[in-house]
Design a protein around this nucleic acid. Structure first.
Lengths: 203, 203
DNA sequence: TTTTATAATGAGTAAAAACTCACTCAAAAA
DNA sequence: TTTTTGAGTGAGTTTTTACTCATTATAAAA
């Protein structure tokens, strides 16, 4: 008799992970259109045939990676809505996580760049554009509510919450892009600098 | 006898401009690799053949667009170095220009996204990567000097100038990307919000 | 109306990239 | 050692896309 179900499953999971890691790297680095499946297979150290056993098409692979990013956004949104901590604490912790991630690795930055690519209408991959938009809007709305609450509690500066949200995520996204571009010349700003425009003096 | 030299030149300039406009739109929207020359020709309302009369290759076309962006950066750098106005005035004016551009059109945002694409090593187009890096570094350095001067004059907050520059351009770049992604949901923050982390209170 | 110089065309070609499938490989157990 | 089953392979096929070139269109002046 051959290997057990579990053994086979572990093998499949291992190769799938190799594919995902390689694809993420390349899609972010070169864009969907400029990445070819041969490169992905080479980077994952597998054959093209095996790649196609796991993903019906290059686009399906891309979509799955975008889904990971979406899942992260939904999780974040739910945390923001859980009211476990104060608005400031919630945002500070979020920024702190981003800071750590950006200082040590690039997982977070990669997911953000991937989101940007998926957003570009017909950016090669006809991802579920509607879904991406919906989730983004949800996260934006949840963050805006957090800001509104912070303003009511007097800890946050006044200002249009939606405008502040746009600036907040623009800054984070811009840092991810800049990290990719500058490579070792990139110097991550302190977490406090990223939120200073949100809080009142001395808070 | 046929048309005059000037008439022919004007014809060529007109089609070249149509190509550039169409290509800029598409490269920014879909990325270099996912944009095909047929689409560019269609958008420019010309034939593929004519496109190739003006540009030897898709890559050459892309490179010319990047060169426009580089020229803008060099101009900005020279203005920063000219010492015509105070550091705060120089940066405020820069941000003001960006603000107007982002409120009315997308020329500026497009150029920034294009820069990002050209940066991605081997992003399909093997642009003069060295040149792009050099010019970017020059602009960053000039901006850092401006900040240092502002700090010496006591108008700017203290902090690592390079770190502040990275945050400054990250924010601007992030806004450009966000504008592309959110489309009509994008709300441009006030110019003051973009520079608040640079200046001392009340300045 | 004819000539002429150059812009403009787009079917055709070559190259690259996505995807398939007939086959081999590996390891557990009989 | 043989059998079994599903992972893994990569040359080959199809599809797409960059690029070419023989031909046509245009408008000014002879």
């Amino acid at each position: 008799m051959p290997r057990t179900k579990e053994q086979y499953e572990q093998m499949r999971n291992a190769t799938k992970e190799k594919i995902q890691t390689a694809a993420m790297q390349l899609f972010v680095q070169k864009g969907f259109g400029s990445t070819n499946v041969q490169d992905i297979a080479d980077a994952a150290e597998i054959s093209i045939g095996l790649l196609y056993r796991h993903y019906k098409s290059k686009e399906k692979l891309f979509n799955e990676l975008v889904d990971f990013a979406l899942a992260g956004m939904i999780q974040q949104k739910e945390y923001f809505e859980s009211n476990e901590v104060s608005p400031k604490q919630a945002l500070d912790q979020f920024v702190h996580e981003i800071y750590n991630d950006m200082m040590t690795g690039e997982q977070f930055a990669n997911l953000l760049i991937l989101m940007q690519q998926s957003f570009l209408t017909g950016g090669g991959a006809t991802v579920n554009y509607v879904e991406v938009t919906r989730v983004s809007e949800q996260l934006f709305r949840a963050t805006a509510r957090l800001i509104t609450k912070g303003q009511e509690q007097g800890q946050f500066r006044s200002g249009n919450p939606h405008e502040m949200v746009v600036l907040f995520y623009s800054t984070i996204h811009g840092l991810a892009a800049m990290k990719m571009m500058l490579q070792h010349n990139f110097q991550m700003p302190s977490p406090a600098a990223l939120t200073s425009f949100l809080y009142k003096e001395g808070e």
